[in-house]
Amino acid sequence: MSWKRVCSASEVAEKSLKQFDVEGVPVLIANLGDEFRAYPPLCPHMEERLEESGICEAGVLTCSKHLWQWDMRTGEMRGEAEKPLLLYEVKQDNGDVLVNIEKELEYEYDEETDDDDDSFWD
């Protein structure tokens, strides 16, 4: 894939997040006022949909579940966060927001360990 149109700039209000589907790839668009950013839609901590749990204030994105925070422009960790945000390249063209999707960005979440053996009950 490559540069894809996601939405028009007016669809995402200032200081807010909105999730879009771009040919099967979910993308979260943030409107910082002067610029846009594009992230994978889930919190890297526990797979929460940031469109619902995220709060944008003073250039900082906060997931309201466990208060992980990031710099919205760079994705760098703030506060409680233990993993940075991933970003797609983003640009505006003729009032539209476009993102560069080479491949879908996804976080790695902890795999559940396997404890199924009978010695567990001893």
Binding site: H45, M46, E47, E48, R49, S53, K65
Partner: peptide, 10 residues
């Protein structure tokens, strides 16, 4: 699906 206090898959 996550609950208001909670997360998906937990």
């Amino acid at each position: 699906e996550g609950q208001p206090s909670g997360n998906p898959k937990r």
